[in-house]
Design a protein around this nucleic acid. Structure first.
Lengths: 220, 220, 220, 220
DNA sequence: TATGAATGAGGTTTCATTCAT
DNA sequence: AATGAATGAAACCTCATTCAT
């Protein structure tokens, strides 16, 4: 039984690990070259398996694509939830923390390529697009809206419509991660990320802060 | 003879117009479905010609793609130049004017799809990417940097690094136009453009303005 | 205009002729090797075109198969109708004439392979099977039933149920044509067709004829 | 030890039974869908084993096919021999007995699918075809020829060439069993088997019987 | 100049076969 | 003896490209 279970578990472990290995390889290539321009040969080669193996785990190239997105988004979503939990702080500080952490989690690392991928393929995969819009964007928006609202309520931020502001505020981060996976490839001059983030925070917090600089701020 | 020349000129006009008709059709489809997923059949059909005709004007699908981008960018560039010329005004006012004009020219209209297209295909067409980066982005950046610099020099804007700020400031506009051609397709709730632009200007001008609000015409 | 129409018509004629050339080649191979074992390469090669050309005329291998059957059956059906028209004669004579003609038309020639093909693929193409059953078999049955009924009515044939007899009577002809396209390939000893048909007619007419050999027969 | 030997014998029985279980499953599927369209996956699944297990018993799909036919034919041949032994009777009675028995053995039951299968694949498996022609058809023919000859000798049947007649006489039975496994699948109207056989015997015995109905037990 | 029938390289997908466990 | 994950050759099918008209 020991041997059986050992044997089984070794196989099982392999079989369970496979899909992630495959989607990881596929993510890299989809981000690099787009969905259509990526050949299954390449994905298989990068994952170190044969072409046929892909079909043991995914019914078609499209299904593989969807799995890549779904699996790639799980960390995003988990991170989002985690950040929601760690919120007790003044809005400005909180905003900084969220931004820095987001960049760490998403900006670096391979899942940062997903937004570009979604943008490129949204029209060809409406199902994926809707899923992404609802499960990722709306969820992220709710998170940031809550931060903005807290700042407004406390007087730290000026009165404004958080549902609009959230798009404006988040855009520079999205553009940066999109840029990284598209035009950044060549020899274009790009601002270093630490400077970019510092100036970003400065610009946004100035743009958001209240005109009447009494109370609030360092208070609490 | 009159008739002949008329006929000839009509033909000539037709002949000259052809390439633009073709690239126009191609642009729509490339934006809609991406480069690889667009078939020449479809482009020909939408342009109302036969597939073979495309090859009278373009050597290959790639060349057609490049022509689409190049031709699509000409209005962008021309507009840019035009705006550069019409610059005498306080920096804040100028900025507003540029933004509103940009949205009119680019945000609406089919060339607004080009940024998404570039982002999606930059890795597959480095030549195009470099061309775009140098001819469009750098040029646009120079324009905006000049505006920022003028504001800093006049004390209207706080001292800052315009080369960094320009990316931050332009991102919400870019994201909006990218969004329009990707995730906006479905039923996602999107902020109306006039509100978006108003809040955008408010946020950015507040974020940029000097702490010492004396001097100058920036007074509110 | 003359030149245009000539040009057009040459092309047109070619384009119209193509499908038949392709289905003819496909019929031969399908009969020889079966549907699944026939590669599109082979069909294209035998028709003297490239693989891609097949897809200009048929959407898929299945559609090609259906077209082969449909087109192959048209002559069968047309012949059937024609025979119906040429019926004025005593039942026995008529039966002989129909049998001989059927063998000429179907037994020889490539469409004789269709029955074997239908039998082999009926389960995989229920749609085809139903079409064949209704359009060919039922139609042919009606024809022969009419002949039997005429013989019964005139007293030439004994009273019996023509709907059952028609199957029994036709079976040896069907088996012969099926045999020709299957087991006959090798070195099996096969009875010559003229003897086969002579004995067939003898057996069937004896089996059918009335017990009371007065009137009828040569009468009329 | 008892348990061990019991276990061993159970295993042994299992092991010996395996091949038949596999060919039985394969026969069903080959008959249903044809050789090429049947996947080994399906066969394994229907037999309740894994795909790899098939290769413990058969070297390839072709070998499995051959084994299916060979094994399927064994009952046919055995039955044939048995019938040969039980021949003492007037030819007509004997013929009836053979026909009824044949339908019981072959017409019903899964081996009835073999003729269709042979017909469909004869061209692709000449070896099988020859084997079938020699071992089954020729043997069956000899059997029936003997019956016909006995009838001729006794004056019960008219003088004729039994080698030709045997094909004619057997065709309706073959067609019926082929039909059952091909076009009968759908909603086609089919004559009930008991009526079919009754009319069949009537037709054939009338077709065969002597013109001079004196002597012998054929009186009826 | 314009057409559209024809091509064939290259992609996705299937499935008989193998082999480590 | 039995498994089932992995393979890769070969099939179907697509579509950018060509060329006779």
């Amino acid at each position: 039984m020991t041997r059986d279970s050992a044997k089984a578990s070794r196989w099982r472990r392999r079989k369970d690990a496979r899909p992630s290995e495959l989607t990881a390889a596929a993510l890299e290539l989809f981000v690099e070259k787009g969905f259509a321009a990526t050949r299954l040969d390449e994905i298989a080669a990068r994952a170190g398996v044969s072409k046929g193996t892909l079909y043991l785990y995914f019914d078609s190239k499209e299904e593989l694509f969807k799995a890549v997105i779904r699996e790639g988004l799980l960390p995003l979503l988990a991170e989002g939830e985690e950040l929601v939990a760690s919120m007790p702080a003044p809005a400005g500080e909180l905003f900084k923390a969220i931004v820095m952490r987001w960049w760490e989690m998403v900006g670096e690392g391979p899942i940062g390529g997903i937004p570009k991928l979604i943008i490129a393929e949204a029209r060809n995969f409406p199902e994926i697009a809707r899923f992404y819009a609802e499960e990722v964007i709306d969820r992220g928006k709710r998170l940031l809206v809550a931060v903005l609202q807290r700042g407004i309520d406390s007087g730290e931020f000026r009165p404004c419509d958080p549902d609009t502001l959230v798009h404006l505020v988040f855009s520079p981060l999205m553009m940066r991660v999109i840029w990284k996976h598209s035009l950044d490839c060549c020899d274009v001059h790009t601002v270093p990320i630490d400077i970019y983030l510092r100036e970003y925070l400065e610009l946004m917090l100035r743009g958001l802060r209240s005109d009447t600089p009494n109370r609030q701020g360092s208070a609490r």
